[in-house]
Design a protein around this nucleic acid. Structure first.
Lengths: 209, 209
DNA sequence: GTCTATAAGTAGATAGAC
DNA sequence: GTCTATCTACTTATAGAC
């Protein structure tokens, strides 16, 4: 490959280097956590020298904060789709729950991300809060709106009910996948979802009657 | 203090030293996580030399595993009391839930412990499983037994219902306390507990009718 | 802007005196 | 059994060449 004086193939410098560094930082921080990550390995994974990493980010903490904030706002925005759901609760609730569970469980990066966030939530509380704003908050709000829009369910407290729905799914993911509890406390996700739907929308829950 | 040849006051050696080391290790590991913890600081917090730490435990990993297993089995056994609950569901369920939440939220050490366990669950899956066996498993089993013993509740799946109860409480703790979400997704624990009780035991949940 | 080389400090772990 | 002193490897971060 002939060298071009300042060709496009070489103009990937600065901008793309930052992206490379963030990619390498993601691999390293998600694999080893904040304290366990090494800036040498970040640089190595990114394919740049360590000095280049430090020329774009102030220090390890700054790189970590930038990475986590970017992942929270870009990569893992909404557990559900973007538009509010419509239709009969006995159809919509299981569909919503299945979609949320599938997205959390199938995505290995998502699990590693949550592990790091929770593990570092004592030392980086503001990062934990960014994640609360991007993950459970929109999910709870979406479900609350949907439940409020269905007064025929006769729910005394739609917001608390939304907490119960989302909280159950989050805990299921936590215990079964993150804490490796599948064989210790076995539970089919479909049973959980059916029971949630039954309790909230009531297979046999005809209003007050 | 005169020196006694082998007096009781000095016989605290070996046995108590191990206890001191585990105490120091607990402070250090809970404060900084596994990777962030230093064996120098463990020794310093324990009031012994580092060599003494290594004479009682093989290495950092061995000390960590011993500590976590001991804490899981001794310190944080049951979220609920030991004996199975009795009485009317509309009374027992809120009482149980309040007790569990109070114990999790008020105990700062418990929160730090859960943070470390989740944060390290990728690198120490067997430790995570020990905690699943000691914490959510007995809680879910207790509630499942109680719900099964009350067929008048007409629950199609008591075990899944127990998951929902325990999972909701765990997630509430997770989001509100561990991830510092109290101001971002506000929710009164009493509203959550009342709604859980309503959905499961039904203020207005008269059997199928 | 990016690199190589290195500074300065701390990590886990052990040898050997007592 | 417990200590002090030490070894080696690795850590974050930067200086200076190009």
């Amino acid at each position: 490959m002939a060298r071009i004086k300042a060709g496009e193939a070489e103009r990937e410098s600065s901008v793309d280097k930052v992206e490379q560094i963030l990619q390498g930082a993601m691999q390293e921080f998600l694999a080893r956590g904040y304290a366990g990550a090494s800036m040498d390995r970040v640089a190595s994974r990114a394919g740049v020298s360590k000095a280049t990493v430090y020329s774009h980010f102030q220090d390890k903490e700054g790189l970590f904060k930038t990475l986590i904030e970017q992942m929270a706002t870009k990569r893992f925005q909404s557990v559900f789709g973007n538009q509010p759901p419509e239709g009969d609760p006995s159809v919509v609730l299981p569909k919503l729950a299945k979609a949320a569970l599938a997205q959390m469980i199938d995505d290995q990066e998502h699990r590693a991300f949550m592990r790091v966030i929770i593990g570092e939530s004592g030392r980086f509380p503001e990062l934990a809060q960014v994640c609360v704003r991007c993950l459970p908050k929109p999910a709870i709000e979406t479900v609350t709106q949907y439940l409020t829009a269905h007064p025929e369910l006769n729910l005394p407290d739609p917001e608390a009910t939304a907490w119960i729905l989302i909280g159950t799914l989050m805990s299921f993911m936590n215990v079964q996948e993150m804490l490796h509890g599948k064989e210790i406390v076995p539970m089919e996700s479909d049973r959980l979802i059916e029971t949630l739907t039954y309790l909230i929308a009531g297979t046999a829950n005809p209003k007050t009657e």
